[in-house]
């Protein structure tokens, strides 16, 4: 734990530095030691007060078979903010993102240790309903992946899963989601057309609308603009800024300018470790870690 008095303590950021490499045992309890006195008791299922912490990991390890992809990551993501995770490719940032909605479960041979919380609830607890978790944690992928259905049916997909059958309500909710995703005006006349006919940027906003329709608390974005042209990218970035009023947004990006433009907080990862997290401007202007500085000044990565 490094307390940095120069950082304005607005969002409660605690930065834990895994100062030594994680032991092969992957036992998170040892490593916590005296470095995490502020961590609430593991059993406490309540959300923190005031600047609410929406997502939290504590000493989180993740293994793909024998390979450790995440090493004792401890991170807190406050509500109604945009938090960016940056780092070179292969550093584990997408893996970390996918830990919050347990998409990593789909990969055979994945093991986890430590703790991940959504609004104080243990994400990896045996009693956790993964399906409900994924409804509460929306996700947007690197490449737009609309279903080969109509625009309307794409957005209505999640609603229908939840049992919404009333046509009027479906239409209203689809419109609301499309408006929030800033796509409504472009597609209002062709909701029945195939989603695959939209441009890449529109498809990505459709995917955002599709995720918003089921009213998630958190929106995970995995390099959401990396497959898009600059104009479409700008629209997605604007959208992220608008959406943070309602949602908590966690975005993975390899583009540091993008992180600087849209995020309130930035976390820098390297080789599975969380090196530094802090207010975005501070992290980019006065990084506390040599590794962070090297990365943002382009010395590697």
């Amino acid at each position: 734990m490094v307390a940095d008095p120069s950082v304005k303590p607005s969002p409660t950021i605690r930065t834990e530095l895994p100062s030594r490499p994680a032991g092969p045992s992957g036992d998170g309890e040892d490593r916590r030691g005296p470095a995490a006195p502020a961590t609430p008791e593991p059993g406490a299922m309540h959300a923190a007060p005031a600047p609410q912490i929406r997502l939290r990991t504590h000493a989180f390890d993740l293994f793909y078979g024998a390979h450790q992809a995440l090493k004792a990551v401890t991170l807190e993501v406050p509500s109604h903010s945009v938090t960016a995770i940056i780092g070179p490719s292969g550093c584990g940032k997408s893996t970390l993102l996918r830990a919050f909605n347990r998409m990593n479960d789909l990969i055979p041979g994945v093991r986890v240790g430590g703790r991940v919380e959504l609004s104080g609830n243990d994400v990896y607890a045996p009693a956790t309903d993964v399906v409900e978790l994924r409804r509460r944690v929306g996700m947007v992928f690197q490449r737009p992946n609309p279903f080969p259905k109509s625009i309307f049916d794409n957005v209505a997909f999640g609603l229908r899963l939840l049992g919404v059958r009333d046509r009027g309500e479906l239409e209203a909710r689809v419109e609301q989601s499309l408006r929030r995703a800033a796509l409504w005006d472009e597609v209002r006349d062709r909701l029945g057309r195939s989603a695959l006919a939209l441009s890449g940027g529109q498809q990505q906003r459709l995917c955002i609308a599709r995720a918003l329709a089921v009213e998630p608390e958190v929106l995970l974005m995995d390099e959401p603009a990396s497959a898009l042209d600059p104009t479409a990218t700008a629209r997605i970035e604007e959208l992220a800024l608008e959406l943070k009023a309602r949602y908590t947004i966690l975005v993975v990006t390899h583009n540091m300018q993008q992180a600087a433009r849209i995020s309130d907080l930035t976390a820098f990862m390297l080789q599975g470790e969380l090196i530094e997290v802090g207010e975005t401007r501070a992290l980019f202007t006065r990084p506390r870690q040599k590794l962070t500085e090297d990365y943002i000044t382009g010395r590697f990565g």
């Binding site: 609603l159 939840l162 049992g163 919404v164 009027g168 309500e169 239409e171 209203a172 609301q176 009213e215």
Partner: peptide, 15 residues
């Protein structure tokens, strides 16, 4: 019935 999006209440899980 036409439902105005502004009047929507938070989504309730029905299924």
């Amino acid at each position: 019935s036409r439902v105005a999006p502004e009047t929507l209440r938070p989504l309730r899980v029905r299924a």
